[in-house]
């Protein structure tokens, strides 16, 4: 385990119109560790990931990857960061117009690191890693079940052997068994690659399975960080209420005015 910081966020702020989504997020993610961010719907989890990936520009704050300020990077340097990043989207975000094998090797093909013939073989190999037969590669994403789509999305996220992988609600929409299977695959793949994982979820079982460290975001701020295996008994009233799914506690359901 390394003590080096892979990702460092300081004072990250983002608002959409009048709505403050991130209100000064401070977070450290150590290299080679799996960090899980917990939080309710609309707490700013997805926006945090999108800010780190450069999909959304934050209003204020610092984002460092490998000790370098992302905002001060050139276009090429940012592209280089994305080259060694993988992302599993909540709904898979597979490209409907391409067969599964092309989805899996999309980045390798786009960067011309591989021929189309070699990409087919590589896709079969990566699909096998996520428990899918090579023949799935010839199917269209629309022909797959939700669980299979998640596996293909995971295969796409790891195919280029990234050293940082982001997981956006990896088990949302899956039954508990399939959720556990996906979590197991995530843990295996991340360990095999030696990558740093950054996941967001509101599934407590999933958070415990895939996380080394955990943090809770509430109203755009990190309110707790600690080991993932302590979830449910952290001594922090907000985290414990969230982990146990209790109605009563410091977190109140907000009604939209």
């Amino acid at each position: 385990m390394s003590d080096a910081l892979k990702i460092r966020l300081r004072g990250l702020k983002k608002r959409f119109g009048d709505k403050v989504v991130l209100d000064g997020v401070d977070l450290d993610v150590r290299a080679g560790r799996s960090m899980v961010i917990l939080g309710g719907s609309g707490s700013g989890k997805s926006v945090t990931i999108k800010c780190i990936l450069g999909l959304i520009r934050p209003d204020e704050g610092l984002i460092e990857i490998d000790g370098r300020d992302v905002a001060k990077m050139s276009r090429e340097e940012r592209a280089a960061i994305l080259d060694r990043t993988g992302m599993l989207f909540q709904n898979g975000a597979l490209f409907d117009s391409l067969p599964v094998w092309e989805n899996v090797c999309f980045k390798l093909l786009a960067q011309r690191r591989i021929t189309r013939a070699a990409a087919r073989e590589k896709a079969a190999e990566v699909l096998e890693q996520v428990g899918l037969a090579a023949s799935v590669g010839d199917l269209s994403p629309a022909e797959l079940s939700g669980g299979m789509q998640k596996r293909v999305a995971l295969a796409r996220a790891i195919a280029a052997q990234p050293d940082i992988i982001f997981f956006d609600e990896p088990t949302t929409g899956l039954d508990p068994i399939m959720g556990a299977v996906i979590d197991g695959l995530i843990v295996d793949c991340v360990k095999k690659l030696g990558a740093t994982a950054f996941s967001i979820t509101h599934d407590m079982a999933s958070a415990r399975r895939i996380g080394d460290d955990a943090a809770m975001i509430h109203k755009g701020r990190i309110v707790w960080t600690g080991p993932a295996n302590a979830l449910g008994d952290t001594g922090n009233a907000m985290v414990d209420q969230f982990a146990r799914g209790e109605r009563e506690g410091p977190i109140q359901m907000e009604l939209r005015k």
Partner: peptide
Amino acid sequence: TMRVTDQIDALTTLST
């Protein structure tokens, strides 16, 4: 449809 299903964001994360 690609926009509302995050496929366009996915393209960016896939270095495209």
